[in-house]
Design a binder for these strands. Sequence first.
DNA 1: ATGGTAGGGGGCCTA
Length: 276
Amino acid sequence: MRVLLADVVPVFQFEICLMKIASFNINGIKARTPALIDWLKDSRPDVALLQEIKSIDEAFPRETFEDLGYNIETHGQKSFNGVAILSKYPLREIRRGLPGDESDEQARWIEATICASSEIKICCLYLPNGNPLGPKYDYKLAWMDRLFLRAHELLRSEQTSLIAGDFNIIPQTEDAATPEAWQNDALFKLESRAKFRKILNLGFLDAFRACNDGRGHYSFWDYQAGAWDRNDGIRIDHFLLSPNCADLLTNCKIDSDIRAREKPSDHVPIWIELNV
DNA sequence: ATGGTAGGGGGCCTA
């Protein structure tokens, strides 16, 4: 008598659901909208975290992205900075601005809880560049101290959490094609790298390094001096995952091919997949 | 040491 596989293998009552979350410094929503639409249709992230929208909230083309199935929350300002969350899942507990300095008017932080099969706290940041060294570098370091405090709070809350975006930090020499050229740059100075490492040491995982080996993985190439053509890049866009979020991680990639498209941003998307 | 390019917005500033 034949025994069918279905008779002996139990039917699983749960589904494996992969959630794709991407981060992309788009360098201006107005200039990047066509490229952003193409990328969303190809890559189909469930959640997209955007930096440098360079737009006030009222000027963000919400309907364009709502038509692609996304809920949208923005935190913008005129001309500079600005962050946004696009999510196919409902968003709640929206927080705009990094806590710790009421006088800080730069739009560099937005966070929300996404309501999927389980809840995930998602934080989208555009960390200050810090160049030239001086007041801008001091602002960067002070901003990172506030980030440390928020990261610490997230861990204490025991929520499944991630912090992603343009950190403007080259963590290690292998994250730059020409590290010697960055020795005295705010993105690579030991002081700012130490503050980044201090956040990792709280217990956050650099998702990209957990899933990839070796040199030559970059997320930014300067528009100038043919940096893309020479692959003179740096890895400055990161996903940091809380331990309970890291347990869900199945993959992390940088979509470097996006840099070769028409009218590209100087950054490319980085994404993770979580088994939720 | 300099300047190379891009975006926003209508001046230069930021990167």
